[in-house]
Design a binder for these strands. Structure first.
Lengths: 97, 97
DNA sequence: TTTCCATATCGTCATTCATCGATATGAATA
DNA sequence: TATTCATATCGATGAATGACGATATGGAAA
């Protein structure tokens, strides 16, 4: 858990929004064809209004920071919040900030 | 309390270190001539190894985010953590992340 | 008033970041 | 095998950030 890298990842509203959407997938991604417990397809996040490549870059930042995990199933890649890392970060920030 | 601006302010190790130093002034700034409860002189933070102007810029980012308050006394400007904002931010991040 | 000191602001430069369209990759399908 | 679809990666570009030395500001002291 690299707190500095996580803070950098959180320092963009698009990325905090993605993480926020992923808190309650059933609330935000009910339109998804696949079962929600597989995770959320990358394409779903294009609803933020940015291009496919930009969204992909934001997702990569979140993944490098360990805030989301990915899983390939067929031609799709599913994203999930990494609750362990989120919890560890929250503990850290509560302790040190 | 602008959480996005605070996250941007926290997204640099120098600034998180400054905030961390300000948690226990008596531990880190015992060398200061002035009483610690006035706050910490800007110049004290040059111990991070950066130039005066760069340190001043980092302090300005923290101030704009509301994470520190300043108080001019004579020719010095004293910095303090803004515990209200820090607490409000922690509450927010615990609730939304 | 002149000088000195602490700090902020300015101008510049290099680096990183956000964004896009285009292209590559890799799996599914025809 | 050729095509399609979802996603990642590439290359370019403009914007924002971080750093510095130099300068401005504002108060204290001589």
């Amino acid at each position: 858990m690299d707190a500095d890298e996580i803070l950098k990842a959180l320092a963009h509203p698009t990325r905090t929004q993605i993480l926020n959407w992923l808190r309650e997938p059933e609330l935000h991604f009910s339109s998804q064809e696949h079962p929600l417990d597989m995770g959320i397809c990358a394409g779903q996040f294009e609803r933020c209004g940015l291009s496919q490549s930009t969204v992909s870059a934001h997702l990569a930042v979140l993944q490098r920071a360990g805030l989301v995990t990915t899983r390939r199933v067929g031609q799709w890649i599913f994203y999930k919040r990494n609750e362990e890392t989120v919890a560890a970060f929250l503990k850290h920030i509560n302790d040190t900030l």
